[in-house]
């Protein structure tokens, strides 16, 4: 029995990866939930918005790398991120102007907007593939690790190593900053409060003189910031491939619904719930168990509950459980 090593293995393969994946999901789900709260539809294009934002950021990153601009040890992508956000925000605002606004004025049913967002998704997906191609792109540079496994072993003298990738650390730090800034905006500024008011009670917000178009514009800008940031962090941490962003839709929606659609705090909690469930259920616990249990009880199977190919089944199962038992989510989101 060796608890210390068990904890290190746990941290290395479960806690840190789940924390950074959860942060990425939380940022994505925040965008979904904000759009839902204000525009009142589930935006199926959000995954591809993330891909678009990440792509623009990658293009800027490459440009900076070619020019020899670097902020090492931080990845150049971090420097390119604001540019990616600006372009993505411009794209979303233009999309709203050309596509969504019409349906808003028509007071179309939410499901029509969902369908329209599907069309937008198609187009974004096409744009991304035309510009950067469907393949995998690498764009990370700067330091690879905050702590790598060898250093950790030397430092602590433990048998197991702990690797803390720079991209994981960056994800966690950036997420904390982004979430803090978002909540400051929503809770402390007049504009943010008016967004919450509009989300809470549209008619009364209008009676109070809140300009709906302005609220909508701010929402798209926030969505662009969150989606691009989430997309870039995910790309840095894993790798950039357009199709994976489409596949993130399900866990993101699941996170937003688990927390209660329209509720920002819920989206964050939901993101971590989904990520931790996914990682713990698809992790092979053999190593941890070997350290924890006396040698006589050491397991001979992998002790993996689900193969990693079924990680989407985890989000889906959680989604189904929530839909059955608590359809408005843990933090009671908006009911329309």
């Amino acid at each position: 029995m060796d608890i210390l090593n068990a904890v290190v293995v746990l941290a290395n393969f479960v806690l840190i990866p789940a924390l950074s994946y959860g942060s990425q999901l939380a940022l994505g789900a925040l965008g979904v939930t904000l759009i839902y709260g204000i525009l009142r539809f589930s935006n199926f294009a959000h995954g591809d918005t993330m891909a678009f934002g990440a792509m623009v950021t990658i293009l800027f990153t490459w440009a900076f790398q070619n020019m020899g601009i670097s902020i090492a040890p931080l990845p150049t992508a971090l420097l390119a991120l604001p540019f990616g956000i600006v372009v993505t925000a411009a794209l979303l605002l233009a999309t709203d102007r050309v596509v969504y606004r019409f349906y808003r004025q028509q007071k179309a049913k939410p499901i029509i907007l969902v369908m329209v967002s599907l069309g937008v998704m198609f187009i974004l997906n096409g744009i991304v593939r035309v510009i950067i191609g469907p393949g995998e792109q690498r764009f990370e540079d700067g330091a690879r690790f905050i702590i790598n496994a060898r250093q950790f072993k030397e430092m602590t003298g433990l048998e197991e190593g702990l690797a803390f990738k720079a991209s994981q650390g960056l994800t966690i730090v950036v997420t904390i900053i982004a979430v803090a800034a978002l909540f400051w905006f929503l809770d402390r500024t007049k504009m943010g409060k008016s967004m919450r008011a509009y989300s809470d009670n549209e008619d009364l917000a209008l009676l109070s003189g809140i300009n709906p178009e302005r609220v909508v514009r701010i929402t798209w800008i926030l969505a662009a910031i969150l989606a691009t940031t989430a997309g870039v962090l995910y790309g840095l941490d894993k790798s950039f491939k357009p199709f994976t962003y489409f596949q993130l839709l399900l866990p993101m929606f699941a996170a937003a619904i688990v927390g209660g659609l329209g509720n920002p705090l819920g989206a964050i909690v939901g993101g971590y719930i989904i990520a931790f469930s996914e990682v713990t259920l698809t992790y092979a616990w053999k190593k941890v168990a070997t350290y924890f249990l006396p040698a006589s009880l050491a397991p001979d199977s992998l002790m993996q509950l689900l193969s990693t190919d079924y990680k989407y089944a985890v989000s889906f199962t959680i989604l189904v459980i929530v839909l059955i038992f608590k359809p408005y989510g843990l933090f009671r989101g908006k009911a329309v």
Partner: peptide
């Protein structure tokens, strides 16, 4: 000033924020 019969407050916001929103303009 108009007070609707139902749905006349922002339920998820604090009392003070409700008043602030009233004064939005």
């Amino acid at each position: 000033g108009f007070v609707p019969q139902t749905h006349n407050i922002f339920t998820s916001m604090t009392v003070e924020e409700n008043l602030e929103m009233g004064a939005f303009l």
